[in-house]
Amino acid sequence: MLPVYRRADTLVHGLHPLAALLLVAVLATTSLLSADPVWAGAAFLLTLAFIGVSGNWGGCRPFLRLGMWMAGAMALINPLVNHQGVHVLVYGPRLPGWGHLNITLEALLYGIFAGVRVFTVIAACGLLAVAVNPDELLDLLSRLALRSSLAAALAVRLYPGMVVEAARMRETQLARGERLEEGGPWKRLRSHLPLWQSLLRGSLDRAASIAEAMSSRGFGSGERTTWRKRTFQPRDLLTALSCLVVLGSLLAARLAGPAYSFFPTPDDPLRSWGPLMPFLPAAGMLSLTFLAWGWRSWHWLRSRI
């Protein structure tokens, strides 16, 4: 079961949804948009450090596990399907319609690089899921699309109930004597089908009941107001500034020269960086980690931000 938002005392939980959204966007996009292994590595380390220091390690663990599997799969599969690169590590057999199954150092490095990027994006999304209040986030987005935001909020609200209901149904059917645990994947899939159908039917009934409850509370009748509970605090400003520094550095690095390439041989990772460039993103990233640490461990700092 994927984790869902839980109230906790961490910096991310205490941020204004706009600042929290910016933070997660920076963690994800830094890794996703950059073709540079130094950036990707830094984003990877920052994301892990930030999740750990901000106290969200436990909540994000299922996402980190998923990210690890996906990163591992990419690192393994890429060298098998990508034959670019000049340094051949293993000479494989020739496969009909495929060619030589050679594994190159460059393809292996690129696979690891792609895996690290995917891992970072999944971890950042995990942080968003467990530490940012979906109601507040969707309230923020509701100016653009109220109904879609509400639908998303309802999905977040109903998902845990659906998981519990699915587990309850499975247990009941097992106790009834259904052979749900037997056979291969195909047989198991078939034996679970009636349960899923029933679960879907139950979810549709629940959706109709929720719609009725919404109607009884005046939803869809007249202008709706928003309730802004949080105001922008110094911590939000500091977080946003740090994020902007990191994003700005990334854009500057992208504009400074051609994109990094692994093939035919990997480029020099620092070739397009000016003398001060590494300090800017490092400062931004460190200040984010420092804020997360201060929120938990330094009362003076916390009381002032």
Binding site: N133, A153, R206, R217, G218, T225, T226, W227
Partner: peptide, 21 residues
């Protein structure tokens, strides 16, 4: 389970008030 719409208690209380403008 079939009548609560938002994700937290205070947001739930605010839901109808927001609808009422």
């Amino acid at each position: 389970e079939d009548q609560l719409i938002t994700t937290t208690v205070e947001r739930e209380i605010a839901f109808g008030l927001q609808n009422a403008g």
